[in-house]
Design a protein around this nucleic acid. Sequence first.
DNA 1: ATTTCTGCAAATGCTTTGCATTGCA
DNA 2: TGCAATGCAAAGCATTTGCAGAAAT
Lengths: 141, 141
Amino acid sequence: MQNIEETLREKKIKVTPQRMAVYAILKGTKSHPNVEMIYQQLKPDYPAMSLATVYKTVDVLKKVGLVQELNVGDGGLRYDSTTIPHSHVYCEKCSKVEDANGFSLDILEDKQLLEKVNKQTGYEITSTQLYFYGICPQCNN
Amino acid sequence: MQNIEETLREKKIKVTPQRMAVYAILKGTKSHPNVEMIYQQLKPDYPAMSLATVYKTVDVLKKVGLVQELNVGDGGLRYDSTTIPHSHVYCEKCSKVEDANGFSLDILEDKQLLEKVNKQTGYEITSTQLYFYGICPQCNN
DNA sequence: ATTTCTGCAAATGCTTTGCATTGCA
DNA sequence: TGCAATGCAAAGCATTTGCAGAAAT
């Protein structure tokens, strides 16, 4: 597990309570929240916290590699503090995002696949996302 | 290749010049345009065309399965008239989207993989997207 | 002391909506 | 003719920006 203070200091980015708090929220949930959800969770403990600060903070955390950003459907970008490769399932009814572990590691960690993509497209690949869209068990009754 | 008039009539959706035109644009390009790009391309031939109509039209085409929607990075949703499974590469510098064919078919058409995802997550999967993020050859000099 | 960050409010950009008019079936 | 689609303008969200005051190094 990465240490946020260390990581920020290394890159000469200031360690602030707001940054610590946003990262703590992401570390402590599996719900892949968007900015609004993070903001709502922080509000009780940090009444002065601004939504704009949350936006700026997730951006910083993303740039230093402490979180990854997910581009699934509606409701804004989602954030995930697990940065090792794994894929996600998105419920088209309730907009929930969950991890889909195990099998997908093979694909997302396959260096040979990245080589093939690079060879075919000429792109220098920096990251990969695998999304499954469907209906979650709770919505499927 | 699917026939748009037939498909729309089957679902009792009216065939209009605007719908034909939007679909024709998508059939005739590999650039995965967003709504604004489609609108700009239509303007010369359809001066009265409204941006809202383009939004509504891509939505209709998506719902009847004539196009697929891509959720890659900035610049709004992208549209693709190729609906057979294939993955995409996105250039983080110029926002270009290109197809990444061949290798990815194995993954995206793998019914066993969907079974595994279903078993692990309980989700009934309806579609899958595989995105590669990186820098395109043109931007990489 | 310097530089960066925060919080606020305003601005921006993409997308949706309401509604009168138009046009397909 | 009847119902659905279009076009326009306004509204709605998510996100970004500019800037003065506050906080971190």
